[in-house]
Design a binder for these strands. Structure first.
Length: 267
DNA sequence: ATGGTTGAGGTTCAA
């Protein structure tokens, strides 16, 4: 019995509904987690998802910026939307669902990008990002209730050397500075999370999920970063049969700068 | 040399 989960920073769900439909039709994930939907809850394209068979939807949106949504073919129950850093941004949504007799909590995150200057004394957005990551350290993969956990999303940090096209050249670039990468590694270690993408494709293999819009030829330059992640509690890791990074989606019409990441499980 | 592009919602901010 295969279970398929996908995560995708869509950078405006309304603008990109055509490629979302294309993706869902072809890959048929059981659950899709979206980030940067950039619309209010009432503006979310519910009907389009319903028509594609995704009749269960949890949406936490806001006007113009951020926003996350989790859509599913089978029942999901909203657990909570947490306001990390208490600034009112819609950057987290957790849902509970049952699959093959397991109770699973799924967290969908959109971590702040952090601006350009990696110094919190002159760039408050970087400080916000560091505070957000600090708050994420309390996230536990296993909470003792017997429930398993999955955490996905655009975490806006490429934690490992081979998560970026040039480790040396990006050490002072926001998303790959030591304070950020150490912070995310601490979230993983203290929370007891398994990094499913890296368990499947260990270093030194390069893994990217994002390519800047600013590159002249993103494919040829290939200056990517692994900003999107799929983590789980360790009990689920042995059930992962496949991880796919859909690089081709970066070349689709009017693309997001992020591509979908898909995890397949067999229970 | 402080580039380059995209999206939302307005003539600018965030990414």
């Amino acid at each position: 019995m295969t279970f398929t989960l996908a995560t995708w920073n869509i950078n405006s769900v309304r603008l990109r509904m055509p490629i979302v439909a294309q993706f869902l039709t072809r890959f048929q994930p059981d659950i899709l987690c979206l980030q940067e939907i950039k619309c209010r809850d009432e503006e979310f394209p519910y009907e389009a998802f319903r028509a594609l068979g995704y009749v269960h939807m949890a949406v936490s949106g806001q006007k113009g910026y951020h926003g996350v949504a989790t859509v599913a073919k089978a029942k999901i129950d909203i657990h909570e939307t947490r306001d990390f850093c208490g600034v009112g941004d819609k950057r987290h949504l957790s849902v509970d669902f049952e699959h093959a007799g397991r109770n699973i909590r799924l967290h969908n995150f959109y971590v702040p990008a952090g601006g350009d200057e990696p110094d919190r004394t002159i760039n408050p957005k970087f400080g916000h990002k560091l505070d957000f990551i600090e708050e994420m350290r309390a996230m536990r993969a296993l909470d003792g209730t017997g429930r398993s956990s999955i955490l996905v999303g655009d975490l806006n940090i490429a934690p490992l050397e081979h998560d970026v096209w040039s480790h040396k050249q990006l050490l002072k670039i926001v998303s790959h500075t030591p304070v950020e990468t150490d912070g995310l590694k601490a979230v993983i270690a203290e929370g007891g999370w398994s990094d499913l993408m890296r368990e499947k494709f260990p270093e030194p293999q390069k893994l990217y999920t994002w390519w800047s819009y600013r590159a002249k030829d993103w494919d040829a330059a290939d200056k990517g970063r692994r900003l999107d992640h799929i983590w789980s509690s360790p009990d689920l890791a042995p059930h992962v049969t496949e991880i796919e990074i859909l690089r081709e989606a970066r070349g689709w019409a009017q693309p997001s700068d992020h591509v979908p990441v898909i995890a397949r499980f067999v229970f």
